[in-house]
Simulated assay, not measured.
Amino acid sequence: MPDPLFTDLLRDTERLTWASIDQVTHRGRQRARRTRMMSVLAAAVAVAVVATGAVVLSGSPEATAPMGPAGPAPTESTGPSAGPLRTVPTSPTGNRRPLVGAADPAVPAAAMLQEGDGPAGYQADDSEGNDDWAFTDSADRCVNPDHPLLRLVTRAERDRYLRDPEPRSNFVMQRVARLAVDDALRYQSLVLDRVESCGDKYVSMWVVAAGFAGEESLVVRAQHNAGPALFYVFVRQGDLVTQVWHNEITDTAAAVELGRAAARRLCAGTDTC
């Protein structure tokens, strides 16, 4: 007895017209061509997407900006809310030689501020100064009285006054110190750390300018209770560091100009500039 499934299959297919071998071959070739064409179109679309993305990127400011080391720009903050800088911006110095400590540590007179660098009419006075004017005096109430900044050993130092003949109470005070190379390189970072660690009911400190002169430079503003603001200028050239203070300075711009004058003079005591 025939299998019912075979009988049904025979009945359904006995009237079908089967394609010839040539027709089957032709259709297979058409399907292969369509498959290749779709692959080519997909690849072309992918290339177009990549090219379009490249064009978009090339038109953006980020893509057209020149690559390379960014030159340090002077920075300025306007008050305590700005907070102290975490690193010391350096001034553009070009290709300098590695820093080597001077064989003769003495600070030459030519490396100090000269008459004409301060206010008109101020006269140079090389009498030894005291620390009543210095940044360390303003920071003596800060936390951490044994701060590393206070433990640096100077190889040599020199003080200079530029005094107003009338009245004698107005003056510019400068101290230049030659430090060991490692201490010179970390000096202003220690100043920044001291500023950051200082702050109590007696005094507030913050950085108001940086990177404006020399290899490193800062202006620190200190405010003692309701007293006048004090501006301390710090500059480094090579292994020489200087601190300058003028009791008549009342704004950042004047402190910056004094720092630039000090930076130019320091070059007489180091071969790094």
Rank of each mutant, 00 (worst) to 15 (best):
P2F: 03
F6A: 15
F6L: 15
R11E: 13
D12F: 00
R15M: 00
T17H: 02
W18M: 03
W18I: 00
A19T: 07
D22H: 12
V24H: 12
H26T: 10
H26Y: 07
H26N: 04
G28H: 09
G28K: 09
R33K: 06
R34D: 04
R36D: 07
R36C: 01
M37F: 01
M37E: 05
S39N: 02
S39L: 03
L41F: 02
A44T: 05
A46P: 00
V50Y: 08
L57G: 07
A65Y: 10
A70R: 06
G71I: 12
P72G: 13
T75K: 14
E76W: 10
T78F: 14
T78R: 12
G83T: 03
G83N: 09
T93H: 08
G94Q: 07
G94I: 02
N95Q: 09
R96D: 06
V100N: 11
V100W: 01
G101P: 00
A103R: 14
A106T: 14
A109W: 10
A110L: 15
Q114A: 10
E115Q: 12
P119Y: 03
A124V: 08
D125S: 10
E128A: 13
E128G: 05
W133M: 10
A134E: 13
F135E: 11
D137G: 12
A139M: 11
C142T: 05
V143E: 12
V143F: 05
P145V: 05
L149P: 00
L149A: 04
L152K: 09
L152I: 11
L152R: 08
A156N: 09
A156T: 09
E157Y: 11
S169T: 11
V172A: 04
M173L: 08
Q174D: 10
Q174T: 12
Y187P: 00
L190Y: 04
L190S: 02
V191Y: 03
R194D: 06
V195E: 13
K201A: 13
K201I: 12
V208S: 15
G211N: 06
G211I: 01
G211W: 01
A213Q: 07
E215Y: 02
E216W: 00
A222N: 13
Q223P: 01
A226C: 04
A229H: 06
L230R: 15
V235Q: 12
D239L: 07
L240Y: 03
V241D: 13
W245C: 01
W245S: 05
H246R: 14
H246M: 11
I249K: 07
T250W: 05
T252A: 11
A261V: 01
C267G: 02
T270Q: 11
T272S: 15
C273N: 11
